[in-house]
Structures are given as structure tokens and as C-alpha cells.
């Protein structure tokens, strides 16, 4: 009797541990098979036939449509550079140099990867209309209130994440990707 009880406890512990560790590794965004560049994360193998079982499980769970290798690469930031989560009660600035891509876009989206609609202002900007300094450097303000220069509105967002999509880019290959210089996300005024 006691042996059966012990076996049941051990089985329950195994089940809990196994499922919990599986959940940890497929929640969005998955910590497995990730390339990290500061706070930016990329999954160059996601949605390809080279994808590992973890990436497959993650995509099946989140339902995201990835970019193909001939299309581009998505990079995701969940926090600012001080590792604090991104919220609409703070202003942020994204500043840096242009990544190596023919076209790239910056957008904010919710925790499930859906784009956020805005009443006023925009939730996304593209590289072709970005205002830049003479040396090619750019600065984008994220704020619920209108800002001068490049502005992305966060008024309809509560918690959000920042996505940069590089189109027709050389950055998908391993060595290019690890040396990619991504823009900094700095937190400003918080309400």
C-alpha cells in the first residue's frame, strides 16, 4: 500500500516537473534557440525546416507567422536596456544606427504578437520615412503623448513589446547576426 502511494507521489512529481519545464520552454518568447543581442532576441531558425522541436512548439502555441529566410528577420525586445518591462506609463527612446537591411520597420505589439491599433498617432514606423541625423543615426520616441521627430504612440498599449523587422537583410546568417548592432532602448520620464 505504502509502496503504491510512494510511486504515485513520484509519478505526480515527475509529471509536474516535466510539464512545468516544457511550459517554461515554449511560452512566448521561448528562451530556447534564441540569439540575443542586448535586450533584442531573434529566432533565425523559427519557421524553417531546420527549426528544433522547441521552436516548433513555440510557433504552434503562439500562432505567429514567421518571416521566411528570403523575406527577412524579426527581432523582439521585451524590456528596456535596464531590463525593466515596457509599459505605457513610461516614455522610451530607441536610438542607434540603421541595421543592414534594404527596409526595416519598428512596431509595438501586445504580449501575444498582435499589432496595437491607435486612435491618433502610429504604432509602427518604416525606415524609408524615418527622420535621421547626417551620420545616419536615428532616434524614435515612444510615448503616449505626441512627440516631435519620429514618434510611436503607446497610448492604447499597457504592456507592450517592440518588434524590429529587417527585410531583405544579410543579417540572417549566423556570424552577421551575432555582430549586428541593434539600437538602444532607454527609458525616460515615467508618469
Amino acid at each position: 500500500m505504502r509502496a503504491i502511494l510512494r510511486l504515485l507521489v513520484a509519478a505526480a512529481a515527475s509529471l509536474a516537473l516535466g510539464l512545468w519545464s516544457a511550459w517554461l520552454s515554449v511560452r512566448s518568447p521561448a528562451p530556447v534557440d534564441t540569439i540575443r543581442l542586448g535586450v533584442w532576441q531573434a529566432w533565425p531558425n523559427a519557421g524553417t525546416s531546420d527549426a528544433d522541436p522547441y521552436s516548433r512548439a513555440r510557433l504552434a502555441r503562439t500562432g505567429e507567422i514567421p518571416l521566411g529566410s528570403g523575406e527577412g528577420l524579426m527581432l523582439l525586445a521585451l524590456t528596456d536596456d535596464s531590463e525593466e518591462p515596457l509599459t505605457a506609463s513610461c516614455d522610451y527612446s530607441i536610438a542607434g544606427q540603421t541595421p543592414p537591411a534594404r527596409l526595416w520597420t519598428v512596431a509595438i505589439e501586445d504580449q501575444d504578437g498582435h499589432s496595437i491599433g491607435m486612435r491618433d498617432g502610429v504604432a509602427a514606423l518604416a525606415s524609408d520615412t524615418l527622420l535621421r541625423a547626417d551620420n545616419g543615426a536615428f532616434r524614435i520616441s515612444l510615448s503616449p503623448r505626441p512627440q516631435g521627430g519620429n514618434w510611436i504612440s503607446t497610448e492604447e498599449a499597457q504592456r507592450f513589446r517592440i518588434v524590429i523587422r529587417l527585410y531583405d537583410t544579410t543579417a540572417r546568417t549566423g556570424t552577421e547576426l551575432t555582430t549586428l548592432e541593434m539600437p538602444k532602448i532607454t527609458r525616460g520620464f515615467c508618469a
Binding site: G18, V26, R61
Partner: peptide, 13 residues
Amino acid sequence: AAGAIHIGAILLV
């Protein structure tokens, strides 16, 4: 056992 369940769960998702 947890490892086996983990792998099974990942493959079944």
C-alpha cells in the same frame, strides 16, 4: 521520468 514527459510534451504541442 520528468525528462521523458518534458520531451513528450514538447513534441506533442
